[in-house]
Computed example of a mutant assay.
Amino acid sequence: MVDARLPAEWLGSIRIDNLSDRAFRVLAGALMWCNGQGTDGQVPSRYTKYLHPDGDDADAFDELERAGLWVRDTDGFRLVGWSTDLRQSTAEEVSRYREGARRRQKEYRDRQRDGRGVDVTDDVTRNVTAHVGSGSSHTRTKKSAYASRDVTDVVTHNADSPFCAKHPTGTSDPCGACARARTALGARENRLTIRGWDCSIDGHKFVTDGTCAVCEFRPHSSAA
């Protein structure tokens, strides 16, 4: 399927604005028909009836001719400036595009069939161990927009401290690690009470330092 274009510069164009609604519809119909048939703007007389729902419209045809948008020839009409003024793709360009698309699709299918489309360097164990469940021996990491960071690195030096390992007595400067420590401590001191929740079945609800906000689970401890 080939789409016809309506150039943005036609909005506000005197030549296009001066067309009647019927003439503009005939013009749009001609663009669509020629693109679909690959005629590069040529509309034989026997097909002009398809350019408007009401069939041939001699007045609209004359109007388009006066506007210089198409000209009469020996067998119908020819749109002027098909690939330049009207900004439409030529039949040759469409053919090259389709051939390129077919070639790329064939190459893709060949790679899939030969196994070349599979990244064999991917660490398959990553997909197996990523969600092995609560209490696994793997270090839990927190993803951010900037980096992958171990959430236990600066918080668990003291489970009851609202400060990080770098600032054991606190600091007046902004510190993200201290903020995480305070969040984790607050979560531990106000553990969630969820009716019917069982960490051994439903999994832990981890807070910033890797501990569970429901039970007594700590990083590197056994699962609940």
Rank of each mutant, 00 (worst) to 15 (best):
M1V: 07
M1L: 08
R5S: 09
R5N: 10
W10H: 07
W10M: 06
R15C: 06
I16N: 03
D17I: 09
L19M: 05
F24S: 08
R25E: 14
V26Q: 12
A28C: 05
A28M: 03
A30S: 14
G41H: 05
V43K: 08
P44V: 05
S45L: 15
Y47Q: 10
Y47W: 12
Y50C: 00
A60M: 02
L69C: 12
W70E: 00
V71T: 01
V71H: 03
R72H: 02
D73E: 15
D73C: 11
G76L: 11
G76H: 12
R78S: 05
R78K: 04
V80R: 11
W82I: 04
L86D: 10
E93H: 00
S95G: 09
S95N: 10
R96E: 15
R96M: 14
R102H: 09
R103A: 02
R103S: 01
R104M: 02
E107C: 01
E107D: 01
D119M: 02
V120E: 05
V124R: 12
R126L: 14
V128E: 13
A130R: 15
V132R: 03
T139P: 00
K142A: 13
A145W: 02
A147T: 11
A147F: 10
D150H: 03
T152H: 01
V154P: 00
T156I: 15
S161K: 09
P162D: 13
F163D: 14
A165G: 02
K166C: 01
H167W: 01
P168Y: 01
T171L: 06
T171H: 07
S172D: 15
C175Y: 04
A179M: 10
A179Q: 09
R180A: 14
R188K: 11
T193L: 06
I194F: 08
S200G: 15
F206I: 15
V207T: 05
P219N: 05
S222K: 14
A223W: 12
